[in-house]
Write a protein that binds this DNA or RNA. Sequence first.
RNA 1: GCCGGUGUGAUGGAAUUGGUAGACAUACCGGACUUAAAAUCCGGAGAGGGAAACCUCGUGCCAGUUCGAGUCUGGCCACCGGCACCA
Length: 823
Amino acid sequence: MERDYQPQIIEPEIQKSWESEKTFKTTEDHNKPKFYCLCMFPYPSGKLHMGHVRNYTIGDVISRFMTMKGYNVLQPMGWDAFGMPAENAAIKNQLPPATWTYENIDHMRRQLKRLGFGYDWDRELATCTPDYYRWEQWLFTRMVDKGLAYRKKARVNWDPVDRTVLANEQVVDGRGWRSGALVEKREIDQWFIRITDYADELLDDLNSVDWPEQVKTMQRNWIGRSQGVEFSFERQGTQERLEVYTTRPDTIMGITYVAVAAQHPIATKAAETNPDIAAFIRDCAQMSVIEADLAKAPKKGIATGEYVIHPFSGEEIPIWIANFVLMDYGSGAVMAVPGHDQRDWEFATQYGLPIKPVIKSYDDDPDYDISKQAWCEKTGVTINSGQFDNLTFEQAFEAVANAIEDQRIGRVTTNYRLRDWGVGRQRYWGCPIPIIHTDEGLKIVRDEDLPVTLPEDVVVDGSESPLIGRSDFVDTVDPETGRQAKRETDTFDTFMESSWYYARFASAFSNDAMLDQNANYWLPVDLYIGGIEHAILHLLYARFFHKVLRDLDLVVTNEPFKKLLTQGMVLKDGSKMSKSKGNTVDPQELIDRYGADTVRLFMMFAAPPELSLEWSDDGVAGAHRFLKRLHTLVTEHVGQGNHLTSDTLELDALSDSARDLYRKLHETVAKVSDDIGRRYHFNTAIAAVMELTNSAIKFNATTESDWQVLSEVIETLVILLSPITPHIAQHLWSQLGNDGSLIDTHWPTVREDALIRDTVTLIVQVNGKLRGRIQVATDADDETVMRMAREEPSVAKFLGGMIEKKAIVIPQKIINLVVAPKR
RNA sequence: GCCGGUGUGAUGGAAUUGGUAGACAUACCGGACUUAAAAUCCGGAGAGGGAAACCUCGUGCCAGUUCGAGUCUGGCCACCGGCACCA
């Protein structure tokens, strides 16, 4: 028998047998409970990075564990294959994006297979293939039919040198990343999808999913549902009105100005006659399109010279144009209450506008000083507010809202921070938007003409999309009129593809519909695993798509992902390891050197999934060393010829040391089962397995029952580790004389009677400080335990000259004696 | 700026429900084996004081709740993620 651990020999052999025996082929088996375990699919950037290895190892460990627990497990894999990096690579390498992408997929598929992940490869998909994206195009045409998709102008980054639209990522310090030209902003017509129609449902259904609270909170805040009041001011000297939205109607008497967005019609109108205003608006139009930049930008504004009339006081209030007011939120205009809103306060301070306090804090809070900052708490009462004086937030809200409704100038409304989803991209390597521009207007492409296929033989040069110059793509005929038409050259946001792939895996073989009935066998995804960086956008879009699919009767559930596990990032040098930053560590080198099992073991041992993990090369060797120790333990055990298995081990017949080892065995089974199956804390599961291994190595077996215990320990170790390091486990399993695939074996169960202890160690504290330990019988009564605690010498010496005031006893754990000096 | 997280030995982390802080590893130090090295095996180790027994301090910082706080509360600091065209 081969005595050395040789992963480079055994791993490929075992992988070959999984492939030839179709071990991970999945079918819809109604005799077992199903378990759909999905990891976020990768962008095929070239090669796997550590984040992928971490993500997919977690999924594989859970999938293998659930299989051994008797579930019918689906674990698929595919490729999020459209996107910008392929175009960048195409420019650099003079290769079409498709060629680059398919080569990357081939390489990364080999890497995934080399890591031993148990995927059902028959279901593999790549989003850049017409077989996949035709259904996305089909779905989009249904959305157009239902009025869920519409056209609207949106601002984009325009590189005047490369004559192309840039992604935010491609704008560096306000300049195009390739040309270095100052980036301009352009307004262009774009397709939007009405995700806001589903805002309430997206918010409310968060309560029905088993997701980390932090992710649900982030999504709730992102949707940002607020109750407020929408009302309009009379504009002095005109017949027109100005509509605003506020969540703080209780502060209405503190308005000292109103502010409108630079894109607001009032601003546009004012600019016609005032060149300063026109210049200000032009400046605003060149501001960043990134919200974080806008929030940090210095507040700027300009007075319009126009006024509105306060609905209750009749005062004249100036209208300002301000760069911090967003046209997309509410009506693009706000009532400004600088006393009680920090942004309004800063703006008023800067431009010398009055600040009027209308809320007084209840308890003379020392932070209440309106000359220094706004008071934004809702805990005070109204002052200086005439008819609305001396009211709490709730009372004032209601009174003001009623007064506004009585005047018929507004009403209570719900508003959302969430905006509709702009899905058009002026890029080549994406799913073509199935629209034709005809002389009768825009028309969706008919079902029978789908898919609109993206030509793959193109030259990408960094300027405008190559689709625009392709007459074989652009020129078409309107099937209704027979007249000339042009195809839309925009493609979809790649979040479109990743919003429904989870469902397509579940009906991977459906050729004549987007989804078939198998989708409803597998869905929802029982466990979805991926990076925390997707907590909002991807997960929100996918949830939205699922509801659209449901409303089209394609699925029956409300939510796509029942449980979510968000893994922390793999960091290198303190920041996210990513292809865009180019700071990746290549897992392939580690696989070549140590084998897949070592890499898998190390990744799972280094940190629990949800924590971010700073990569370091230290420790991989330690994981490898452990596998060698295990390999040696098992091969020596088998070599000694004393591998004895018994179904009827008599606990009473065991020596003390064998009894202890046997108890530890079952404690380990309990811990590992809980850690893998419930907590997803693989690092502590591995630590427990290591402890048991160390105990097994130290154990000196002499009798037949000793050998039986050791044999059971060794066999169980191999099984417990098999989800994490499946190759060495399978190899050792065979060495131990077992036939067949280890994954067909049942997960071990805990023998409860093996866990029973006769004695337990209790901690004794005096005034909360550890002073001693006592060994007591598990069934000892409190009186006995207390006597032993007080008599324990290390404890007793702290009791001299003291009066015992209190004794806290936590059974089987701790005793705390609270004492004070005698006087 | 806003939203969400994280912070424990030299390092990664453990402590699951408020009850022994530092499991299990890595790096390090010492020993065994070896002509030697590697590999392997055995042992040590939070910091400070002490000859030792043992004592004191210690989970980013400052307060608080509690018999008892890494864990709960309030306030700060640092770092990480997201902010709608990176995926």
